[in-house]
């Protein structure tokens, strides 16, 4: 049963036969290698640029240029000097809406991963160290969550939470919870598989033989070595969450209008693809650039955290 869960591991796995390095060495090494990875740096640069632009947009008119929700009669324009990305069905500026969409989609992507990370780590560790029965139960629980009727769950969650006037639970939060609640199983399997395979490694056996406590082994030896693959998986999870949100928007279950994530913009624009293709091209392009950035960063991180390439 270790199988499919551990199976993800070889992709990212730590195949070092040697003694694990100290905490600091691992991370500073990784960072150094990361800096040398041009593609990863490109991704990081692109991401930072987009992020900064979308964040300052709300503060600076020079960047945002138009209010994202202003309905005008200049509808369905292509790109112009005034409207860089054109306008949509209601004459709203697509440039401003795309910047807003980036903001929201990144919130959803990052927020989802926070949920995924906490649930995934908890259940992964629980499965790996909780004994055979616990392990079995946790793994079957992940099976259940994987086949869970998520659409029903999301409809219900929205209905329960929306319009209750709970300040903290905005539409974006509901979306984060809804996607996160279902996406964590991958991380849980990854963590569990990683933990189990590390448990068999020489350095852990050695530490055990030297009389290290179980807690110490887990915290100093196993968690740091698990974190690498987990971080990589999380970077890939961000764009996946952005995609999941796009699919939900396609079904009309996106975040509340007039705010729009990139997914909502693409799903709405897709209805007008023949009227004004730019409605789709720019938000979809933004998703693609975000995807690419995170992919490059993820690849870079994986290479950087792979001990075999460690100098």
């Amino acid at each position: 049963m270790a199988t499919q869960d551990a199976a993800v591991a070889p992709l990212f796995a730590d195949h070092s036969d040697g003694i694990v390095r100290g905490h600091r060495g691992l991370w500073s090494d990784a960072w150094r290698r990361m800096l040398q990875n041009k593609l990863a740096m490109l991704g990081l640069g692109a991401l930072a640029t987009i992020l900064v632009m979308s964040l300052v947009a709300t503060q600076m008119n020079v960047v945002e240029r138009h209010a994202p929700h202003d309905i005008t009669t200049a509808k369905q324009l292509g790109p112009t000097g005034d409207h860089f990305f054109g306008t949509d069905q209601l004459g709203r500026d697509t440039w401003a809406r795309t910047l807003e969409g980036v903001r929201i989609s990144l919130q959803i992507g990052l927020g989802t991963q926070l949920v995924v990370l906490s649930l995934g780590l908890f259940f992964g560790v629980l499965a790996a160290f909780g004994g055979k029965l616990t392990d079995n139960l946790v793994m079957r629980f992940t099976d259940i969550m994987f086949s869970f009727p998520d659409l029903l769950f999301i409809i219900l969650l929205r209905e329960i939470l929306n319009g209750q006037g709970i300040k903290f639970l905005t539409g974006t939060m509901v979306m984060i919870l809804a996607i996160g609640m279902i996406a964590w199983t991958t991380i849980a399997r990854l963590v569990r598989g990683q933990m189990l395979s590390l448990g068999e490694r020489d350095f852990v056996t050695a530490a055990r033989a030297l009389g290290a406590t179980r807690w110490r082994i887990v915290t100093t030896h196993m968690l740091p070595n698990t974190l690498g693959p987990v971080i990589v998986a999380v970077t890939f999870g961000i764009p996946t969450a952005i995609f999941a949100e796009a699919a939900l928007s396609f079904l009309g279950l996106g975040i509340p209008a007039p705010a729009a994530s990139l997914g909502t913009l693409v799903a709405d624009g897709n209805r007008f693809v023949q009227v004004n293709v730019w409605n789709v091209v720019f938000p979809a392009g933004a998703i693609a650039v975000l995807m690419l950035s995170f992919t490059f960063i993820g690849d870079g991180l994986r290479d950087a955290l792979d001990p075999r390439t460690r100098g």
Binding site: T3, A6, S147
Partner: peptide
């Protein structure tokens, strides 16, 4: 449809696990 999907997922996972063991004999069952 939900049950059918769950069944497919369970079977697919099972096949992968077993296949995986065939390809990589180091895998330990738990």
């Amino acid at each position: 449809t939900t049950l059918f999907y769950a069944l497919i997922v369970a079977i697919a996972n099972l096949i992968v696990d077993v296949l995986y063991a065939v390809v990589d004999p180091r895998i330990r069952y738990r």
